[in-house]
Simulated assay, not measured.
Amino acid sequence: MKKNFLDLIKKTKIMQESLKKVKKELSLIEVEGKSFSGLVKIYLTCRNKVNKIFIDPSLFKKDKDMLEDLIIIAFNDAINKAKLKSKEKINTITNGIKLPFDF
C-alpha cells in the first residue's frame, strides 16, 4: 500500500511538471476569433492574451454600435477557441480526467 501511495505521488509530480509545460505552450499558441462576417478578427493566445485586432476599414464609416457588437462577437469567439484548444492540450496529459480548476 505504501508503494502505491509513493507511485501516486510520483505520478502527481510528473503531471504537475507536464501541466507547467503545457501552460507555457498554451501561451505561445494563437487562435483567431472573428465576427460572423469576418470583418473583425481578434488574435489571442490560449492564455487569453490579446496579440492583435483586425477591423476592416469599411466598418469605420458605419454605425459605432455595430462595430462594438462585432468586436464582442470576435472576442468571445476567440476565447471559446482558446478554451477548446487548452482543453485538448490538457486532455493529452490527464487522459480526459477533469481537473478541479480551469487551466
Score class of each variant (00 low, 15 high):
42 I>Q: 06
43 Y>E: 10
103 F>Y: 08
99 L>S: 02
89 K>R: 13
3 K>I: 14
45 T>K: 05
2 K>P: 05
75 F>M: 05
1 M>P: 09
95 N>L: 13
90 I>K: 00
3 K>D: 15
9 I>A: 13
84 L>W: 05
38 G>Q: 10
4 N>Q: 13
55 I>E: 06
77 D>W: 04
43 Y>Q: 06
31 V>H: 00
30 E>Y: 12
53 I>G: 02
15 M>D: 12
71 I>Y: 14
32 E>P: 03
68 E>S: 14
35 S>G: 04
82 A>I: 03
42 I>H: 05
68 E>T: 07
6 L>I: 07
58 S>I: 15
83 K>C: 10
16 Q>A: 13
52 K>D: 15
32 E>D: 05
38 G>F: 04
43 Y>R: 06
48 N>I: 12
40 V>Y: 02
1 M>N: 11
73 I>C: 09
99 L>W: 02
21 K>E: 11
89 K>M: 14
67 L>N: 03
41 K>Y: 12
89 K>D: 03
20 K>N: 12
30 E>L: 13
48 N>A: 11
47 R>V: 03
5 F>S: 09
91 N>P: 06
57 P>I: 10
80 N>M: 04
12 T>R: 09
103 F>M: 02
15 M>G: 15
45 T>V: 00
89 K>I: 09
12 T>F: 10
38 G>R: 05
77 D>R: 01
69 D>F: 08
87 K>M: 07
53 I>F: 02
89 K>V: 06
68 E>D: 12
54 F>L: 09
39 L>K: 13
46 C>T: 01
86 S>M: 03
42 I>G: 12
53 I>H: 01
40 V>G: 01
101 F>T: 01
13 K>G: 10
64 K>Q: 14
66 M>K: 10
20 K>Y: 08
15 M>H: 06
89 K>T: 03
101 F>S: 01
87 K>D: 14
22 V>H: 02
66 M>A: 09
58 S>N: 14
18 S>N: 00
44 L>F: 06
72 I>K: 11
88 E>V: 04
29 I>T: 09
76 N>W: 03
8 L>Q: 08
84 L>C: 03
12 T>E: 13
62 K>S: 14
92 T>A: 01
31 V>M: 00
64 K>G: 08
81 K>E: 09
75 F>C: 02
76 N>T: 03
48 N>S: 12
59 L>G: 07
77 D>V: 08
34 K>V: 00
63 D>G: 07
75 F>E: 02
93 I>W: 04
96 G>R: 01
64 K>H: 12
27 S>A: 15
58 S>W: 10
83 K>G: 04
47 R>Y: 02
66 M>Y: 08
31 V>E: 00
95 N>D: 10
22 V>I: 13
64 K>Y: 15
78 A>M: 02
9 I>V: 11
66 M>R: 07
7 D>I: 06
8 L>Y: 07
22 V>A: 05
20 K>Q: 09
9 I>S: 12
31 V>A: 01
58 S>R: 15
60 F>K: 13
62 K>T: 10
2 K>E: 15
67 L>W: 07
76 N>V: 03
29 I>N: 05
18 S>H: 00
22 V>S: 09
40 V>H: 01
28 L>S: 15
33 G>K: 00
81 K>I: 12
93 I>F: 03
39 L>R: 04
1 M>V: 10
10 K>V: 03
6 L>R: 08
82 A>P: 04
65 D>A: 15
93 I>Q: 01
81 K>S: 13
86 S>P: 04
102 D>H: 08
25 E>M: 10
78 A>C: 01
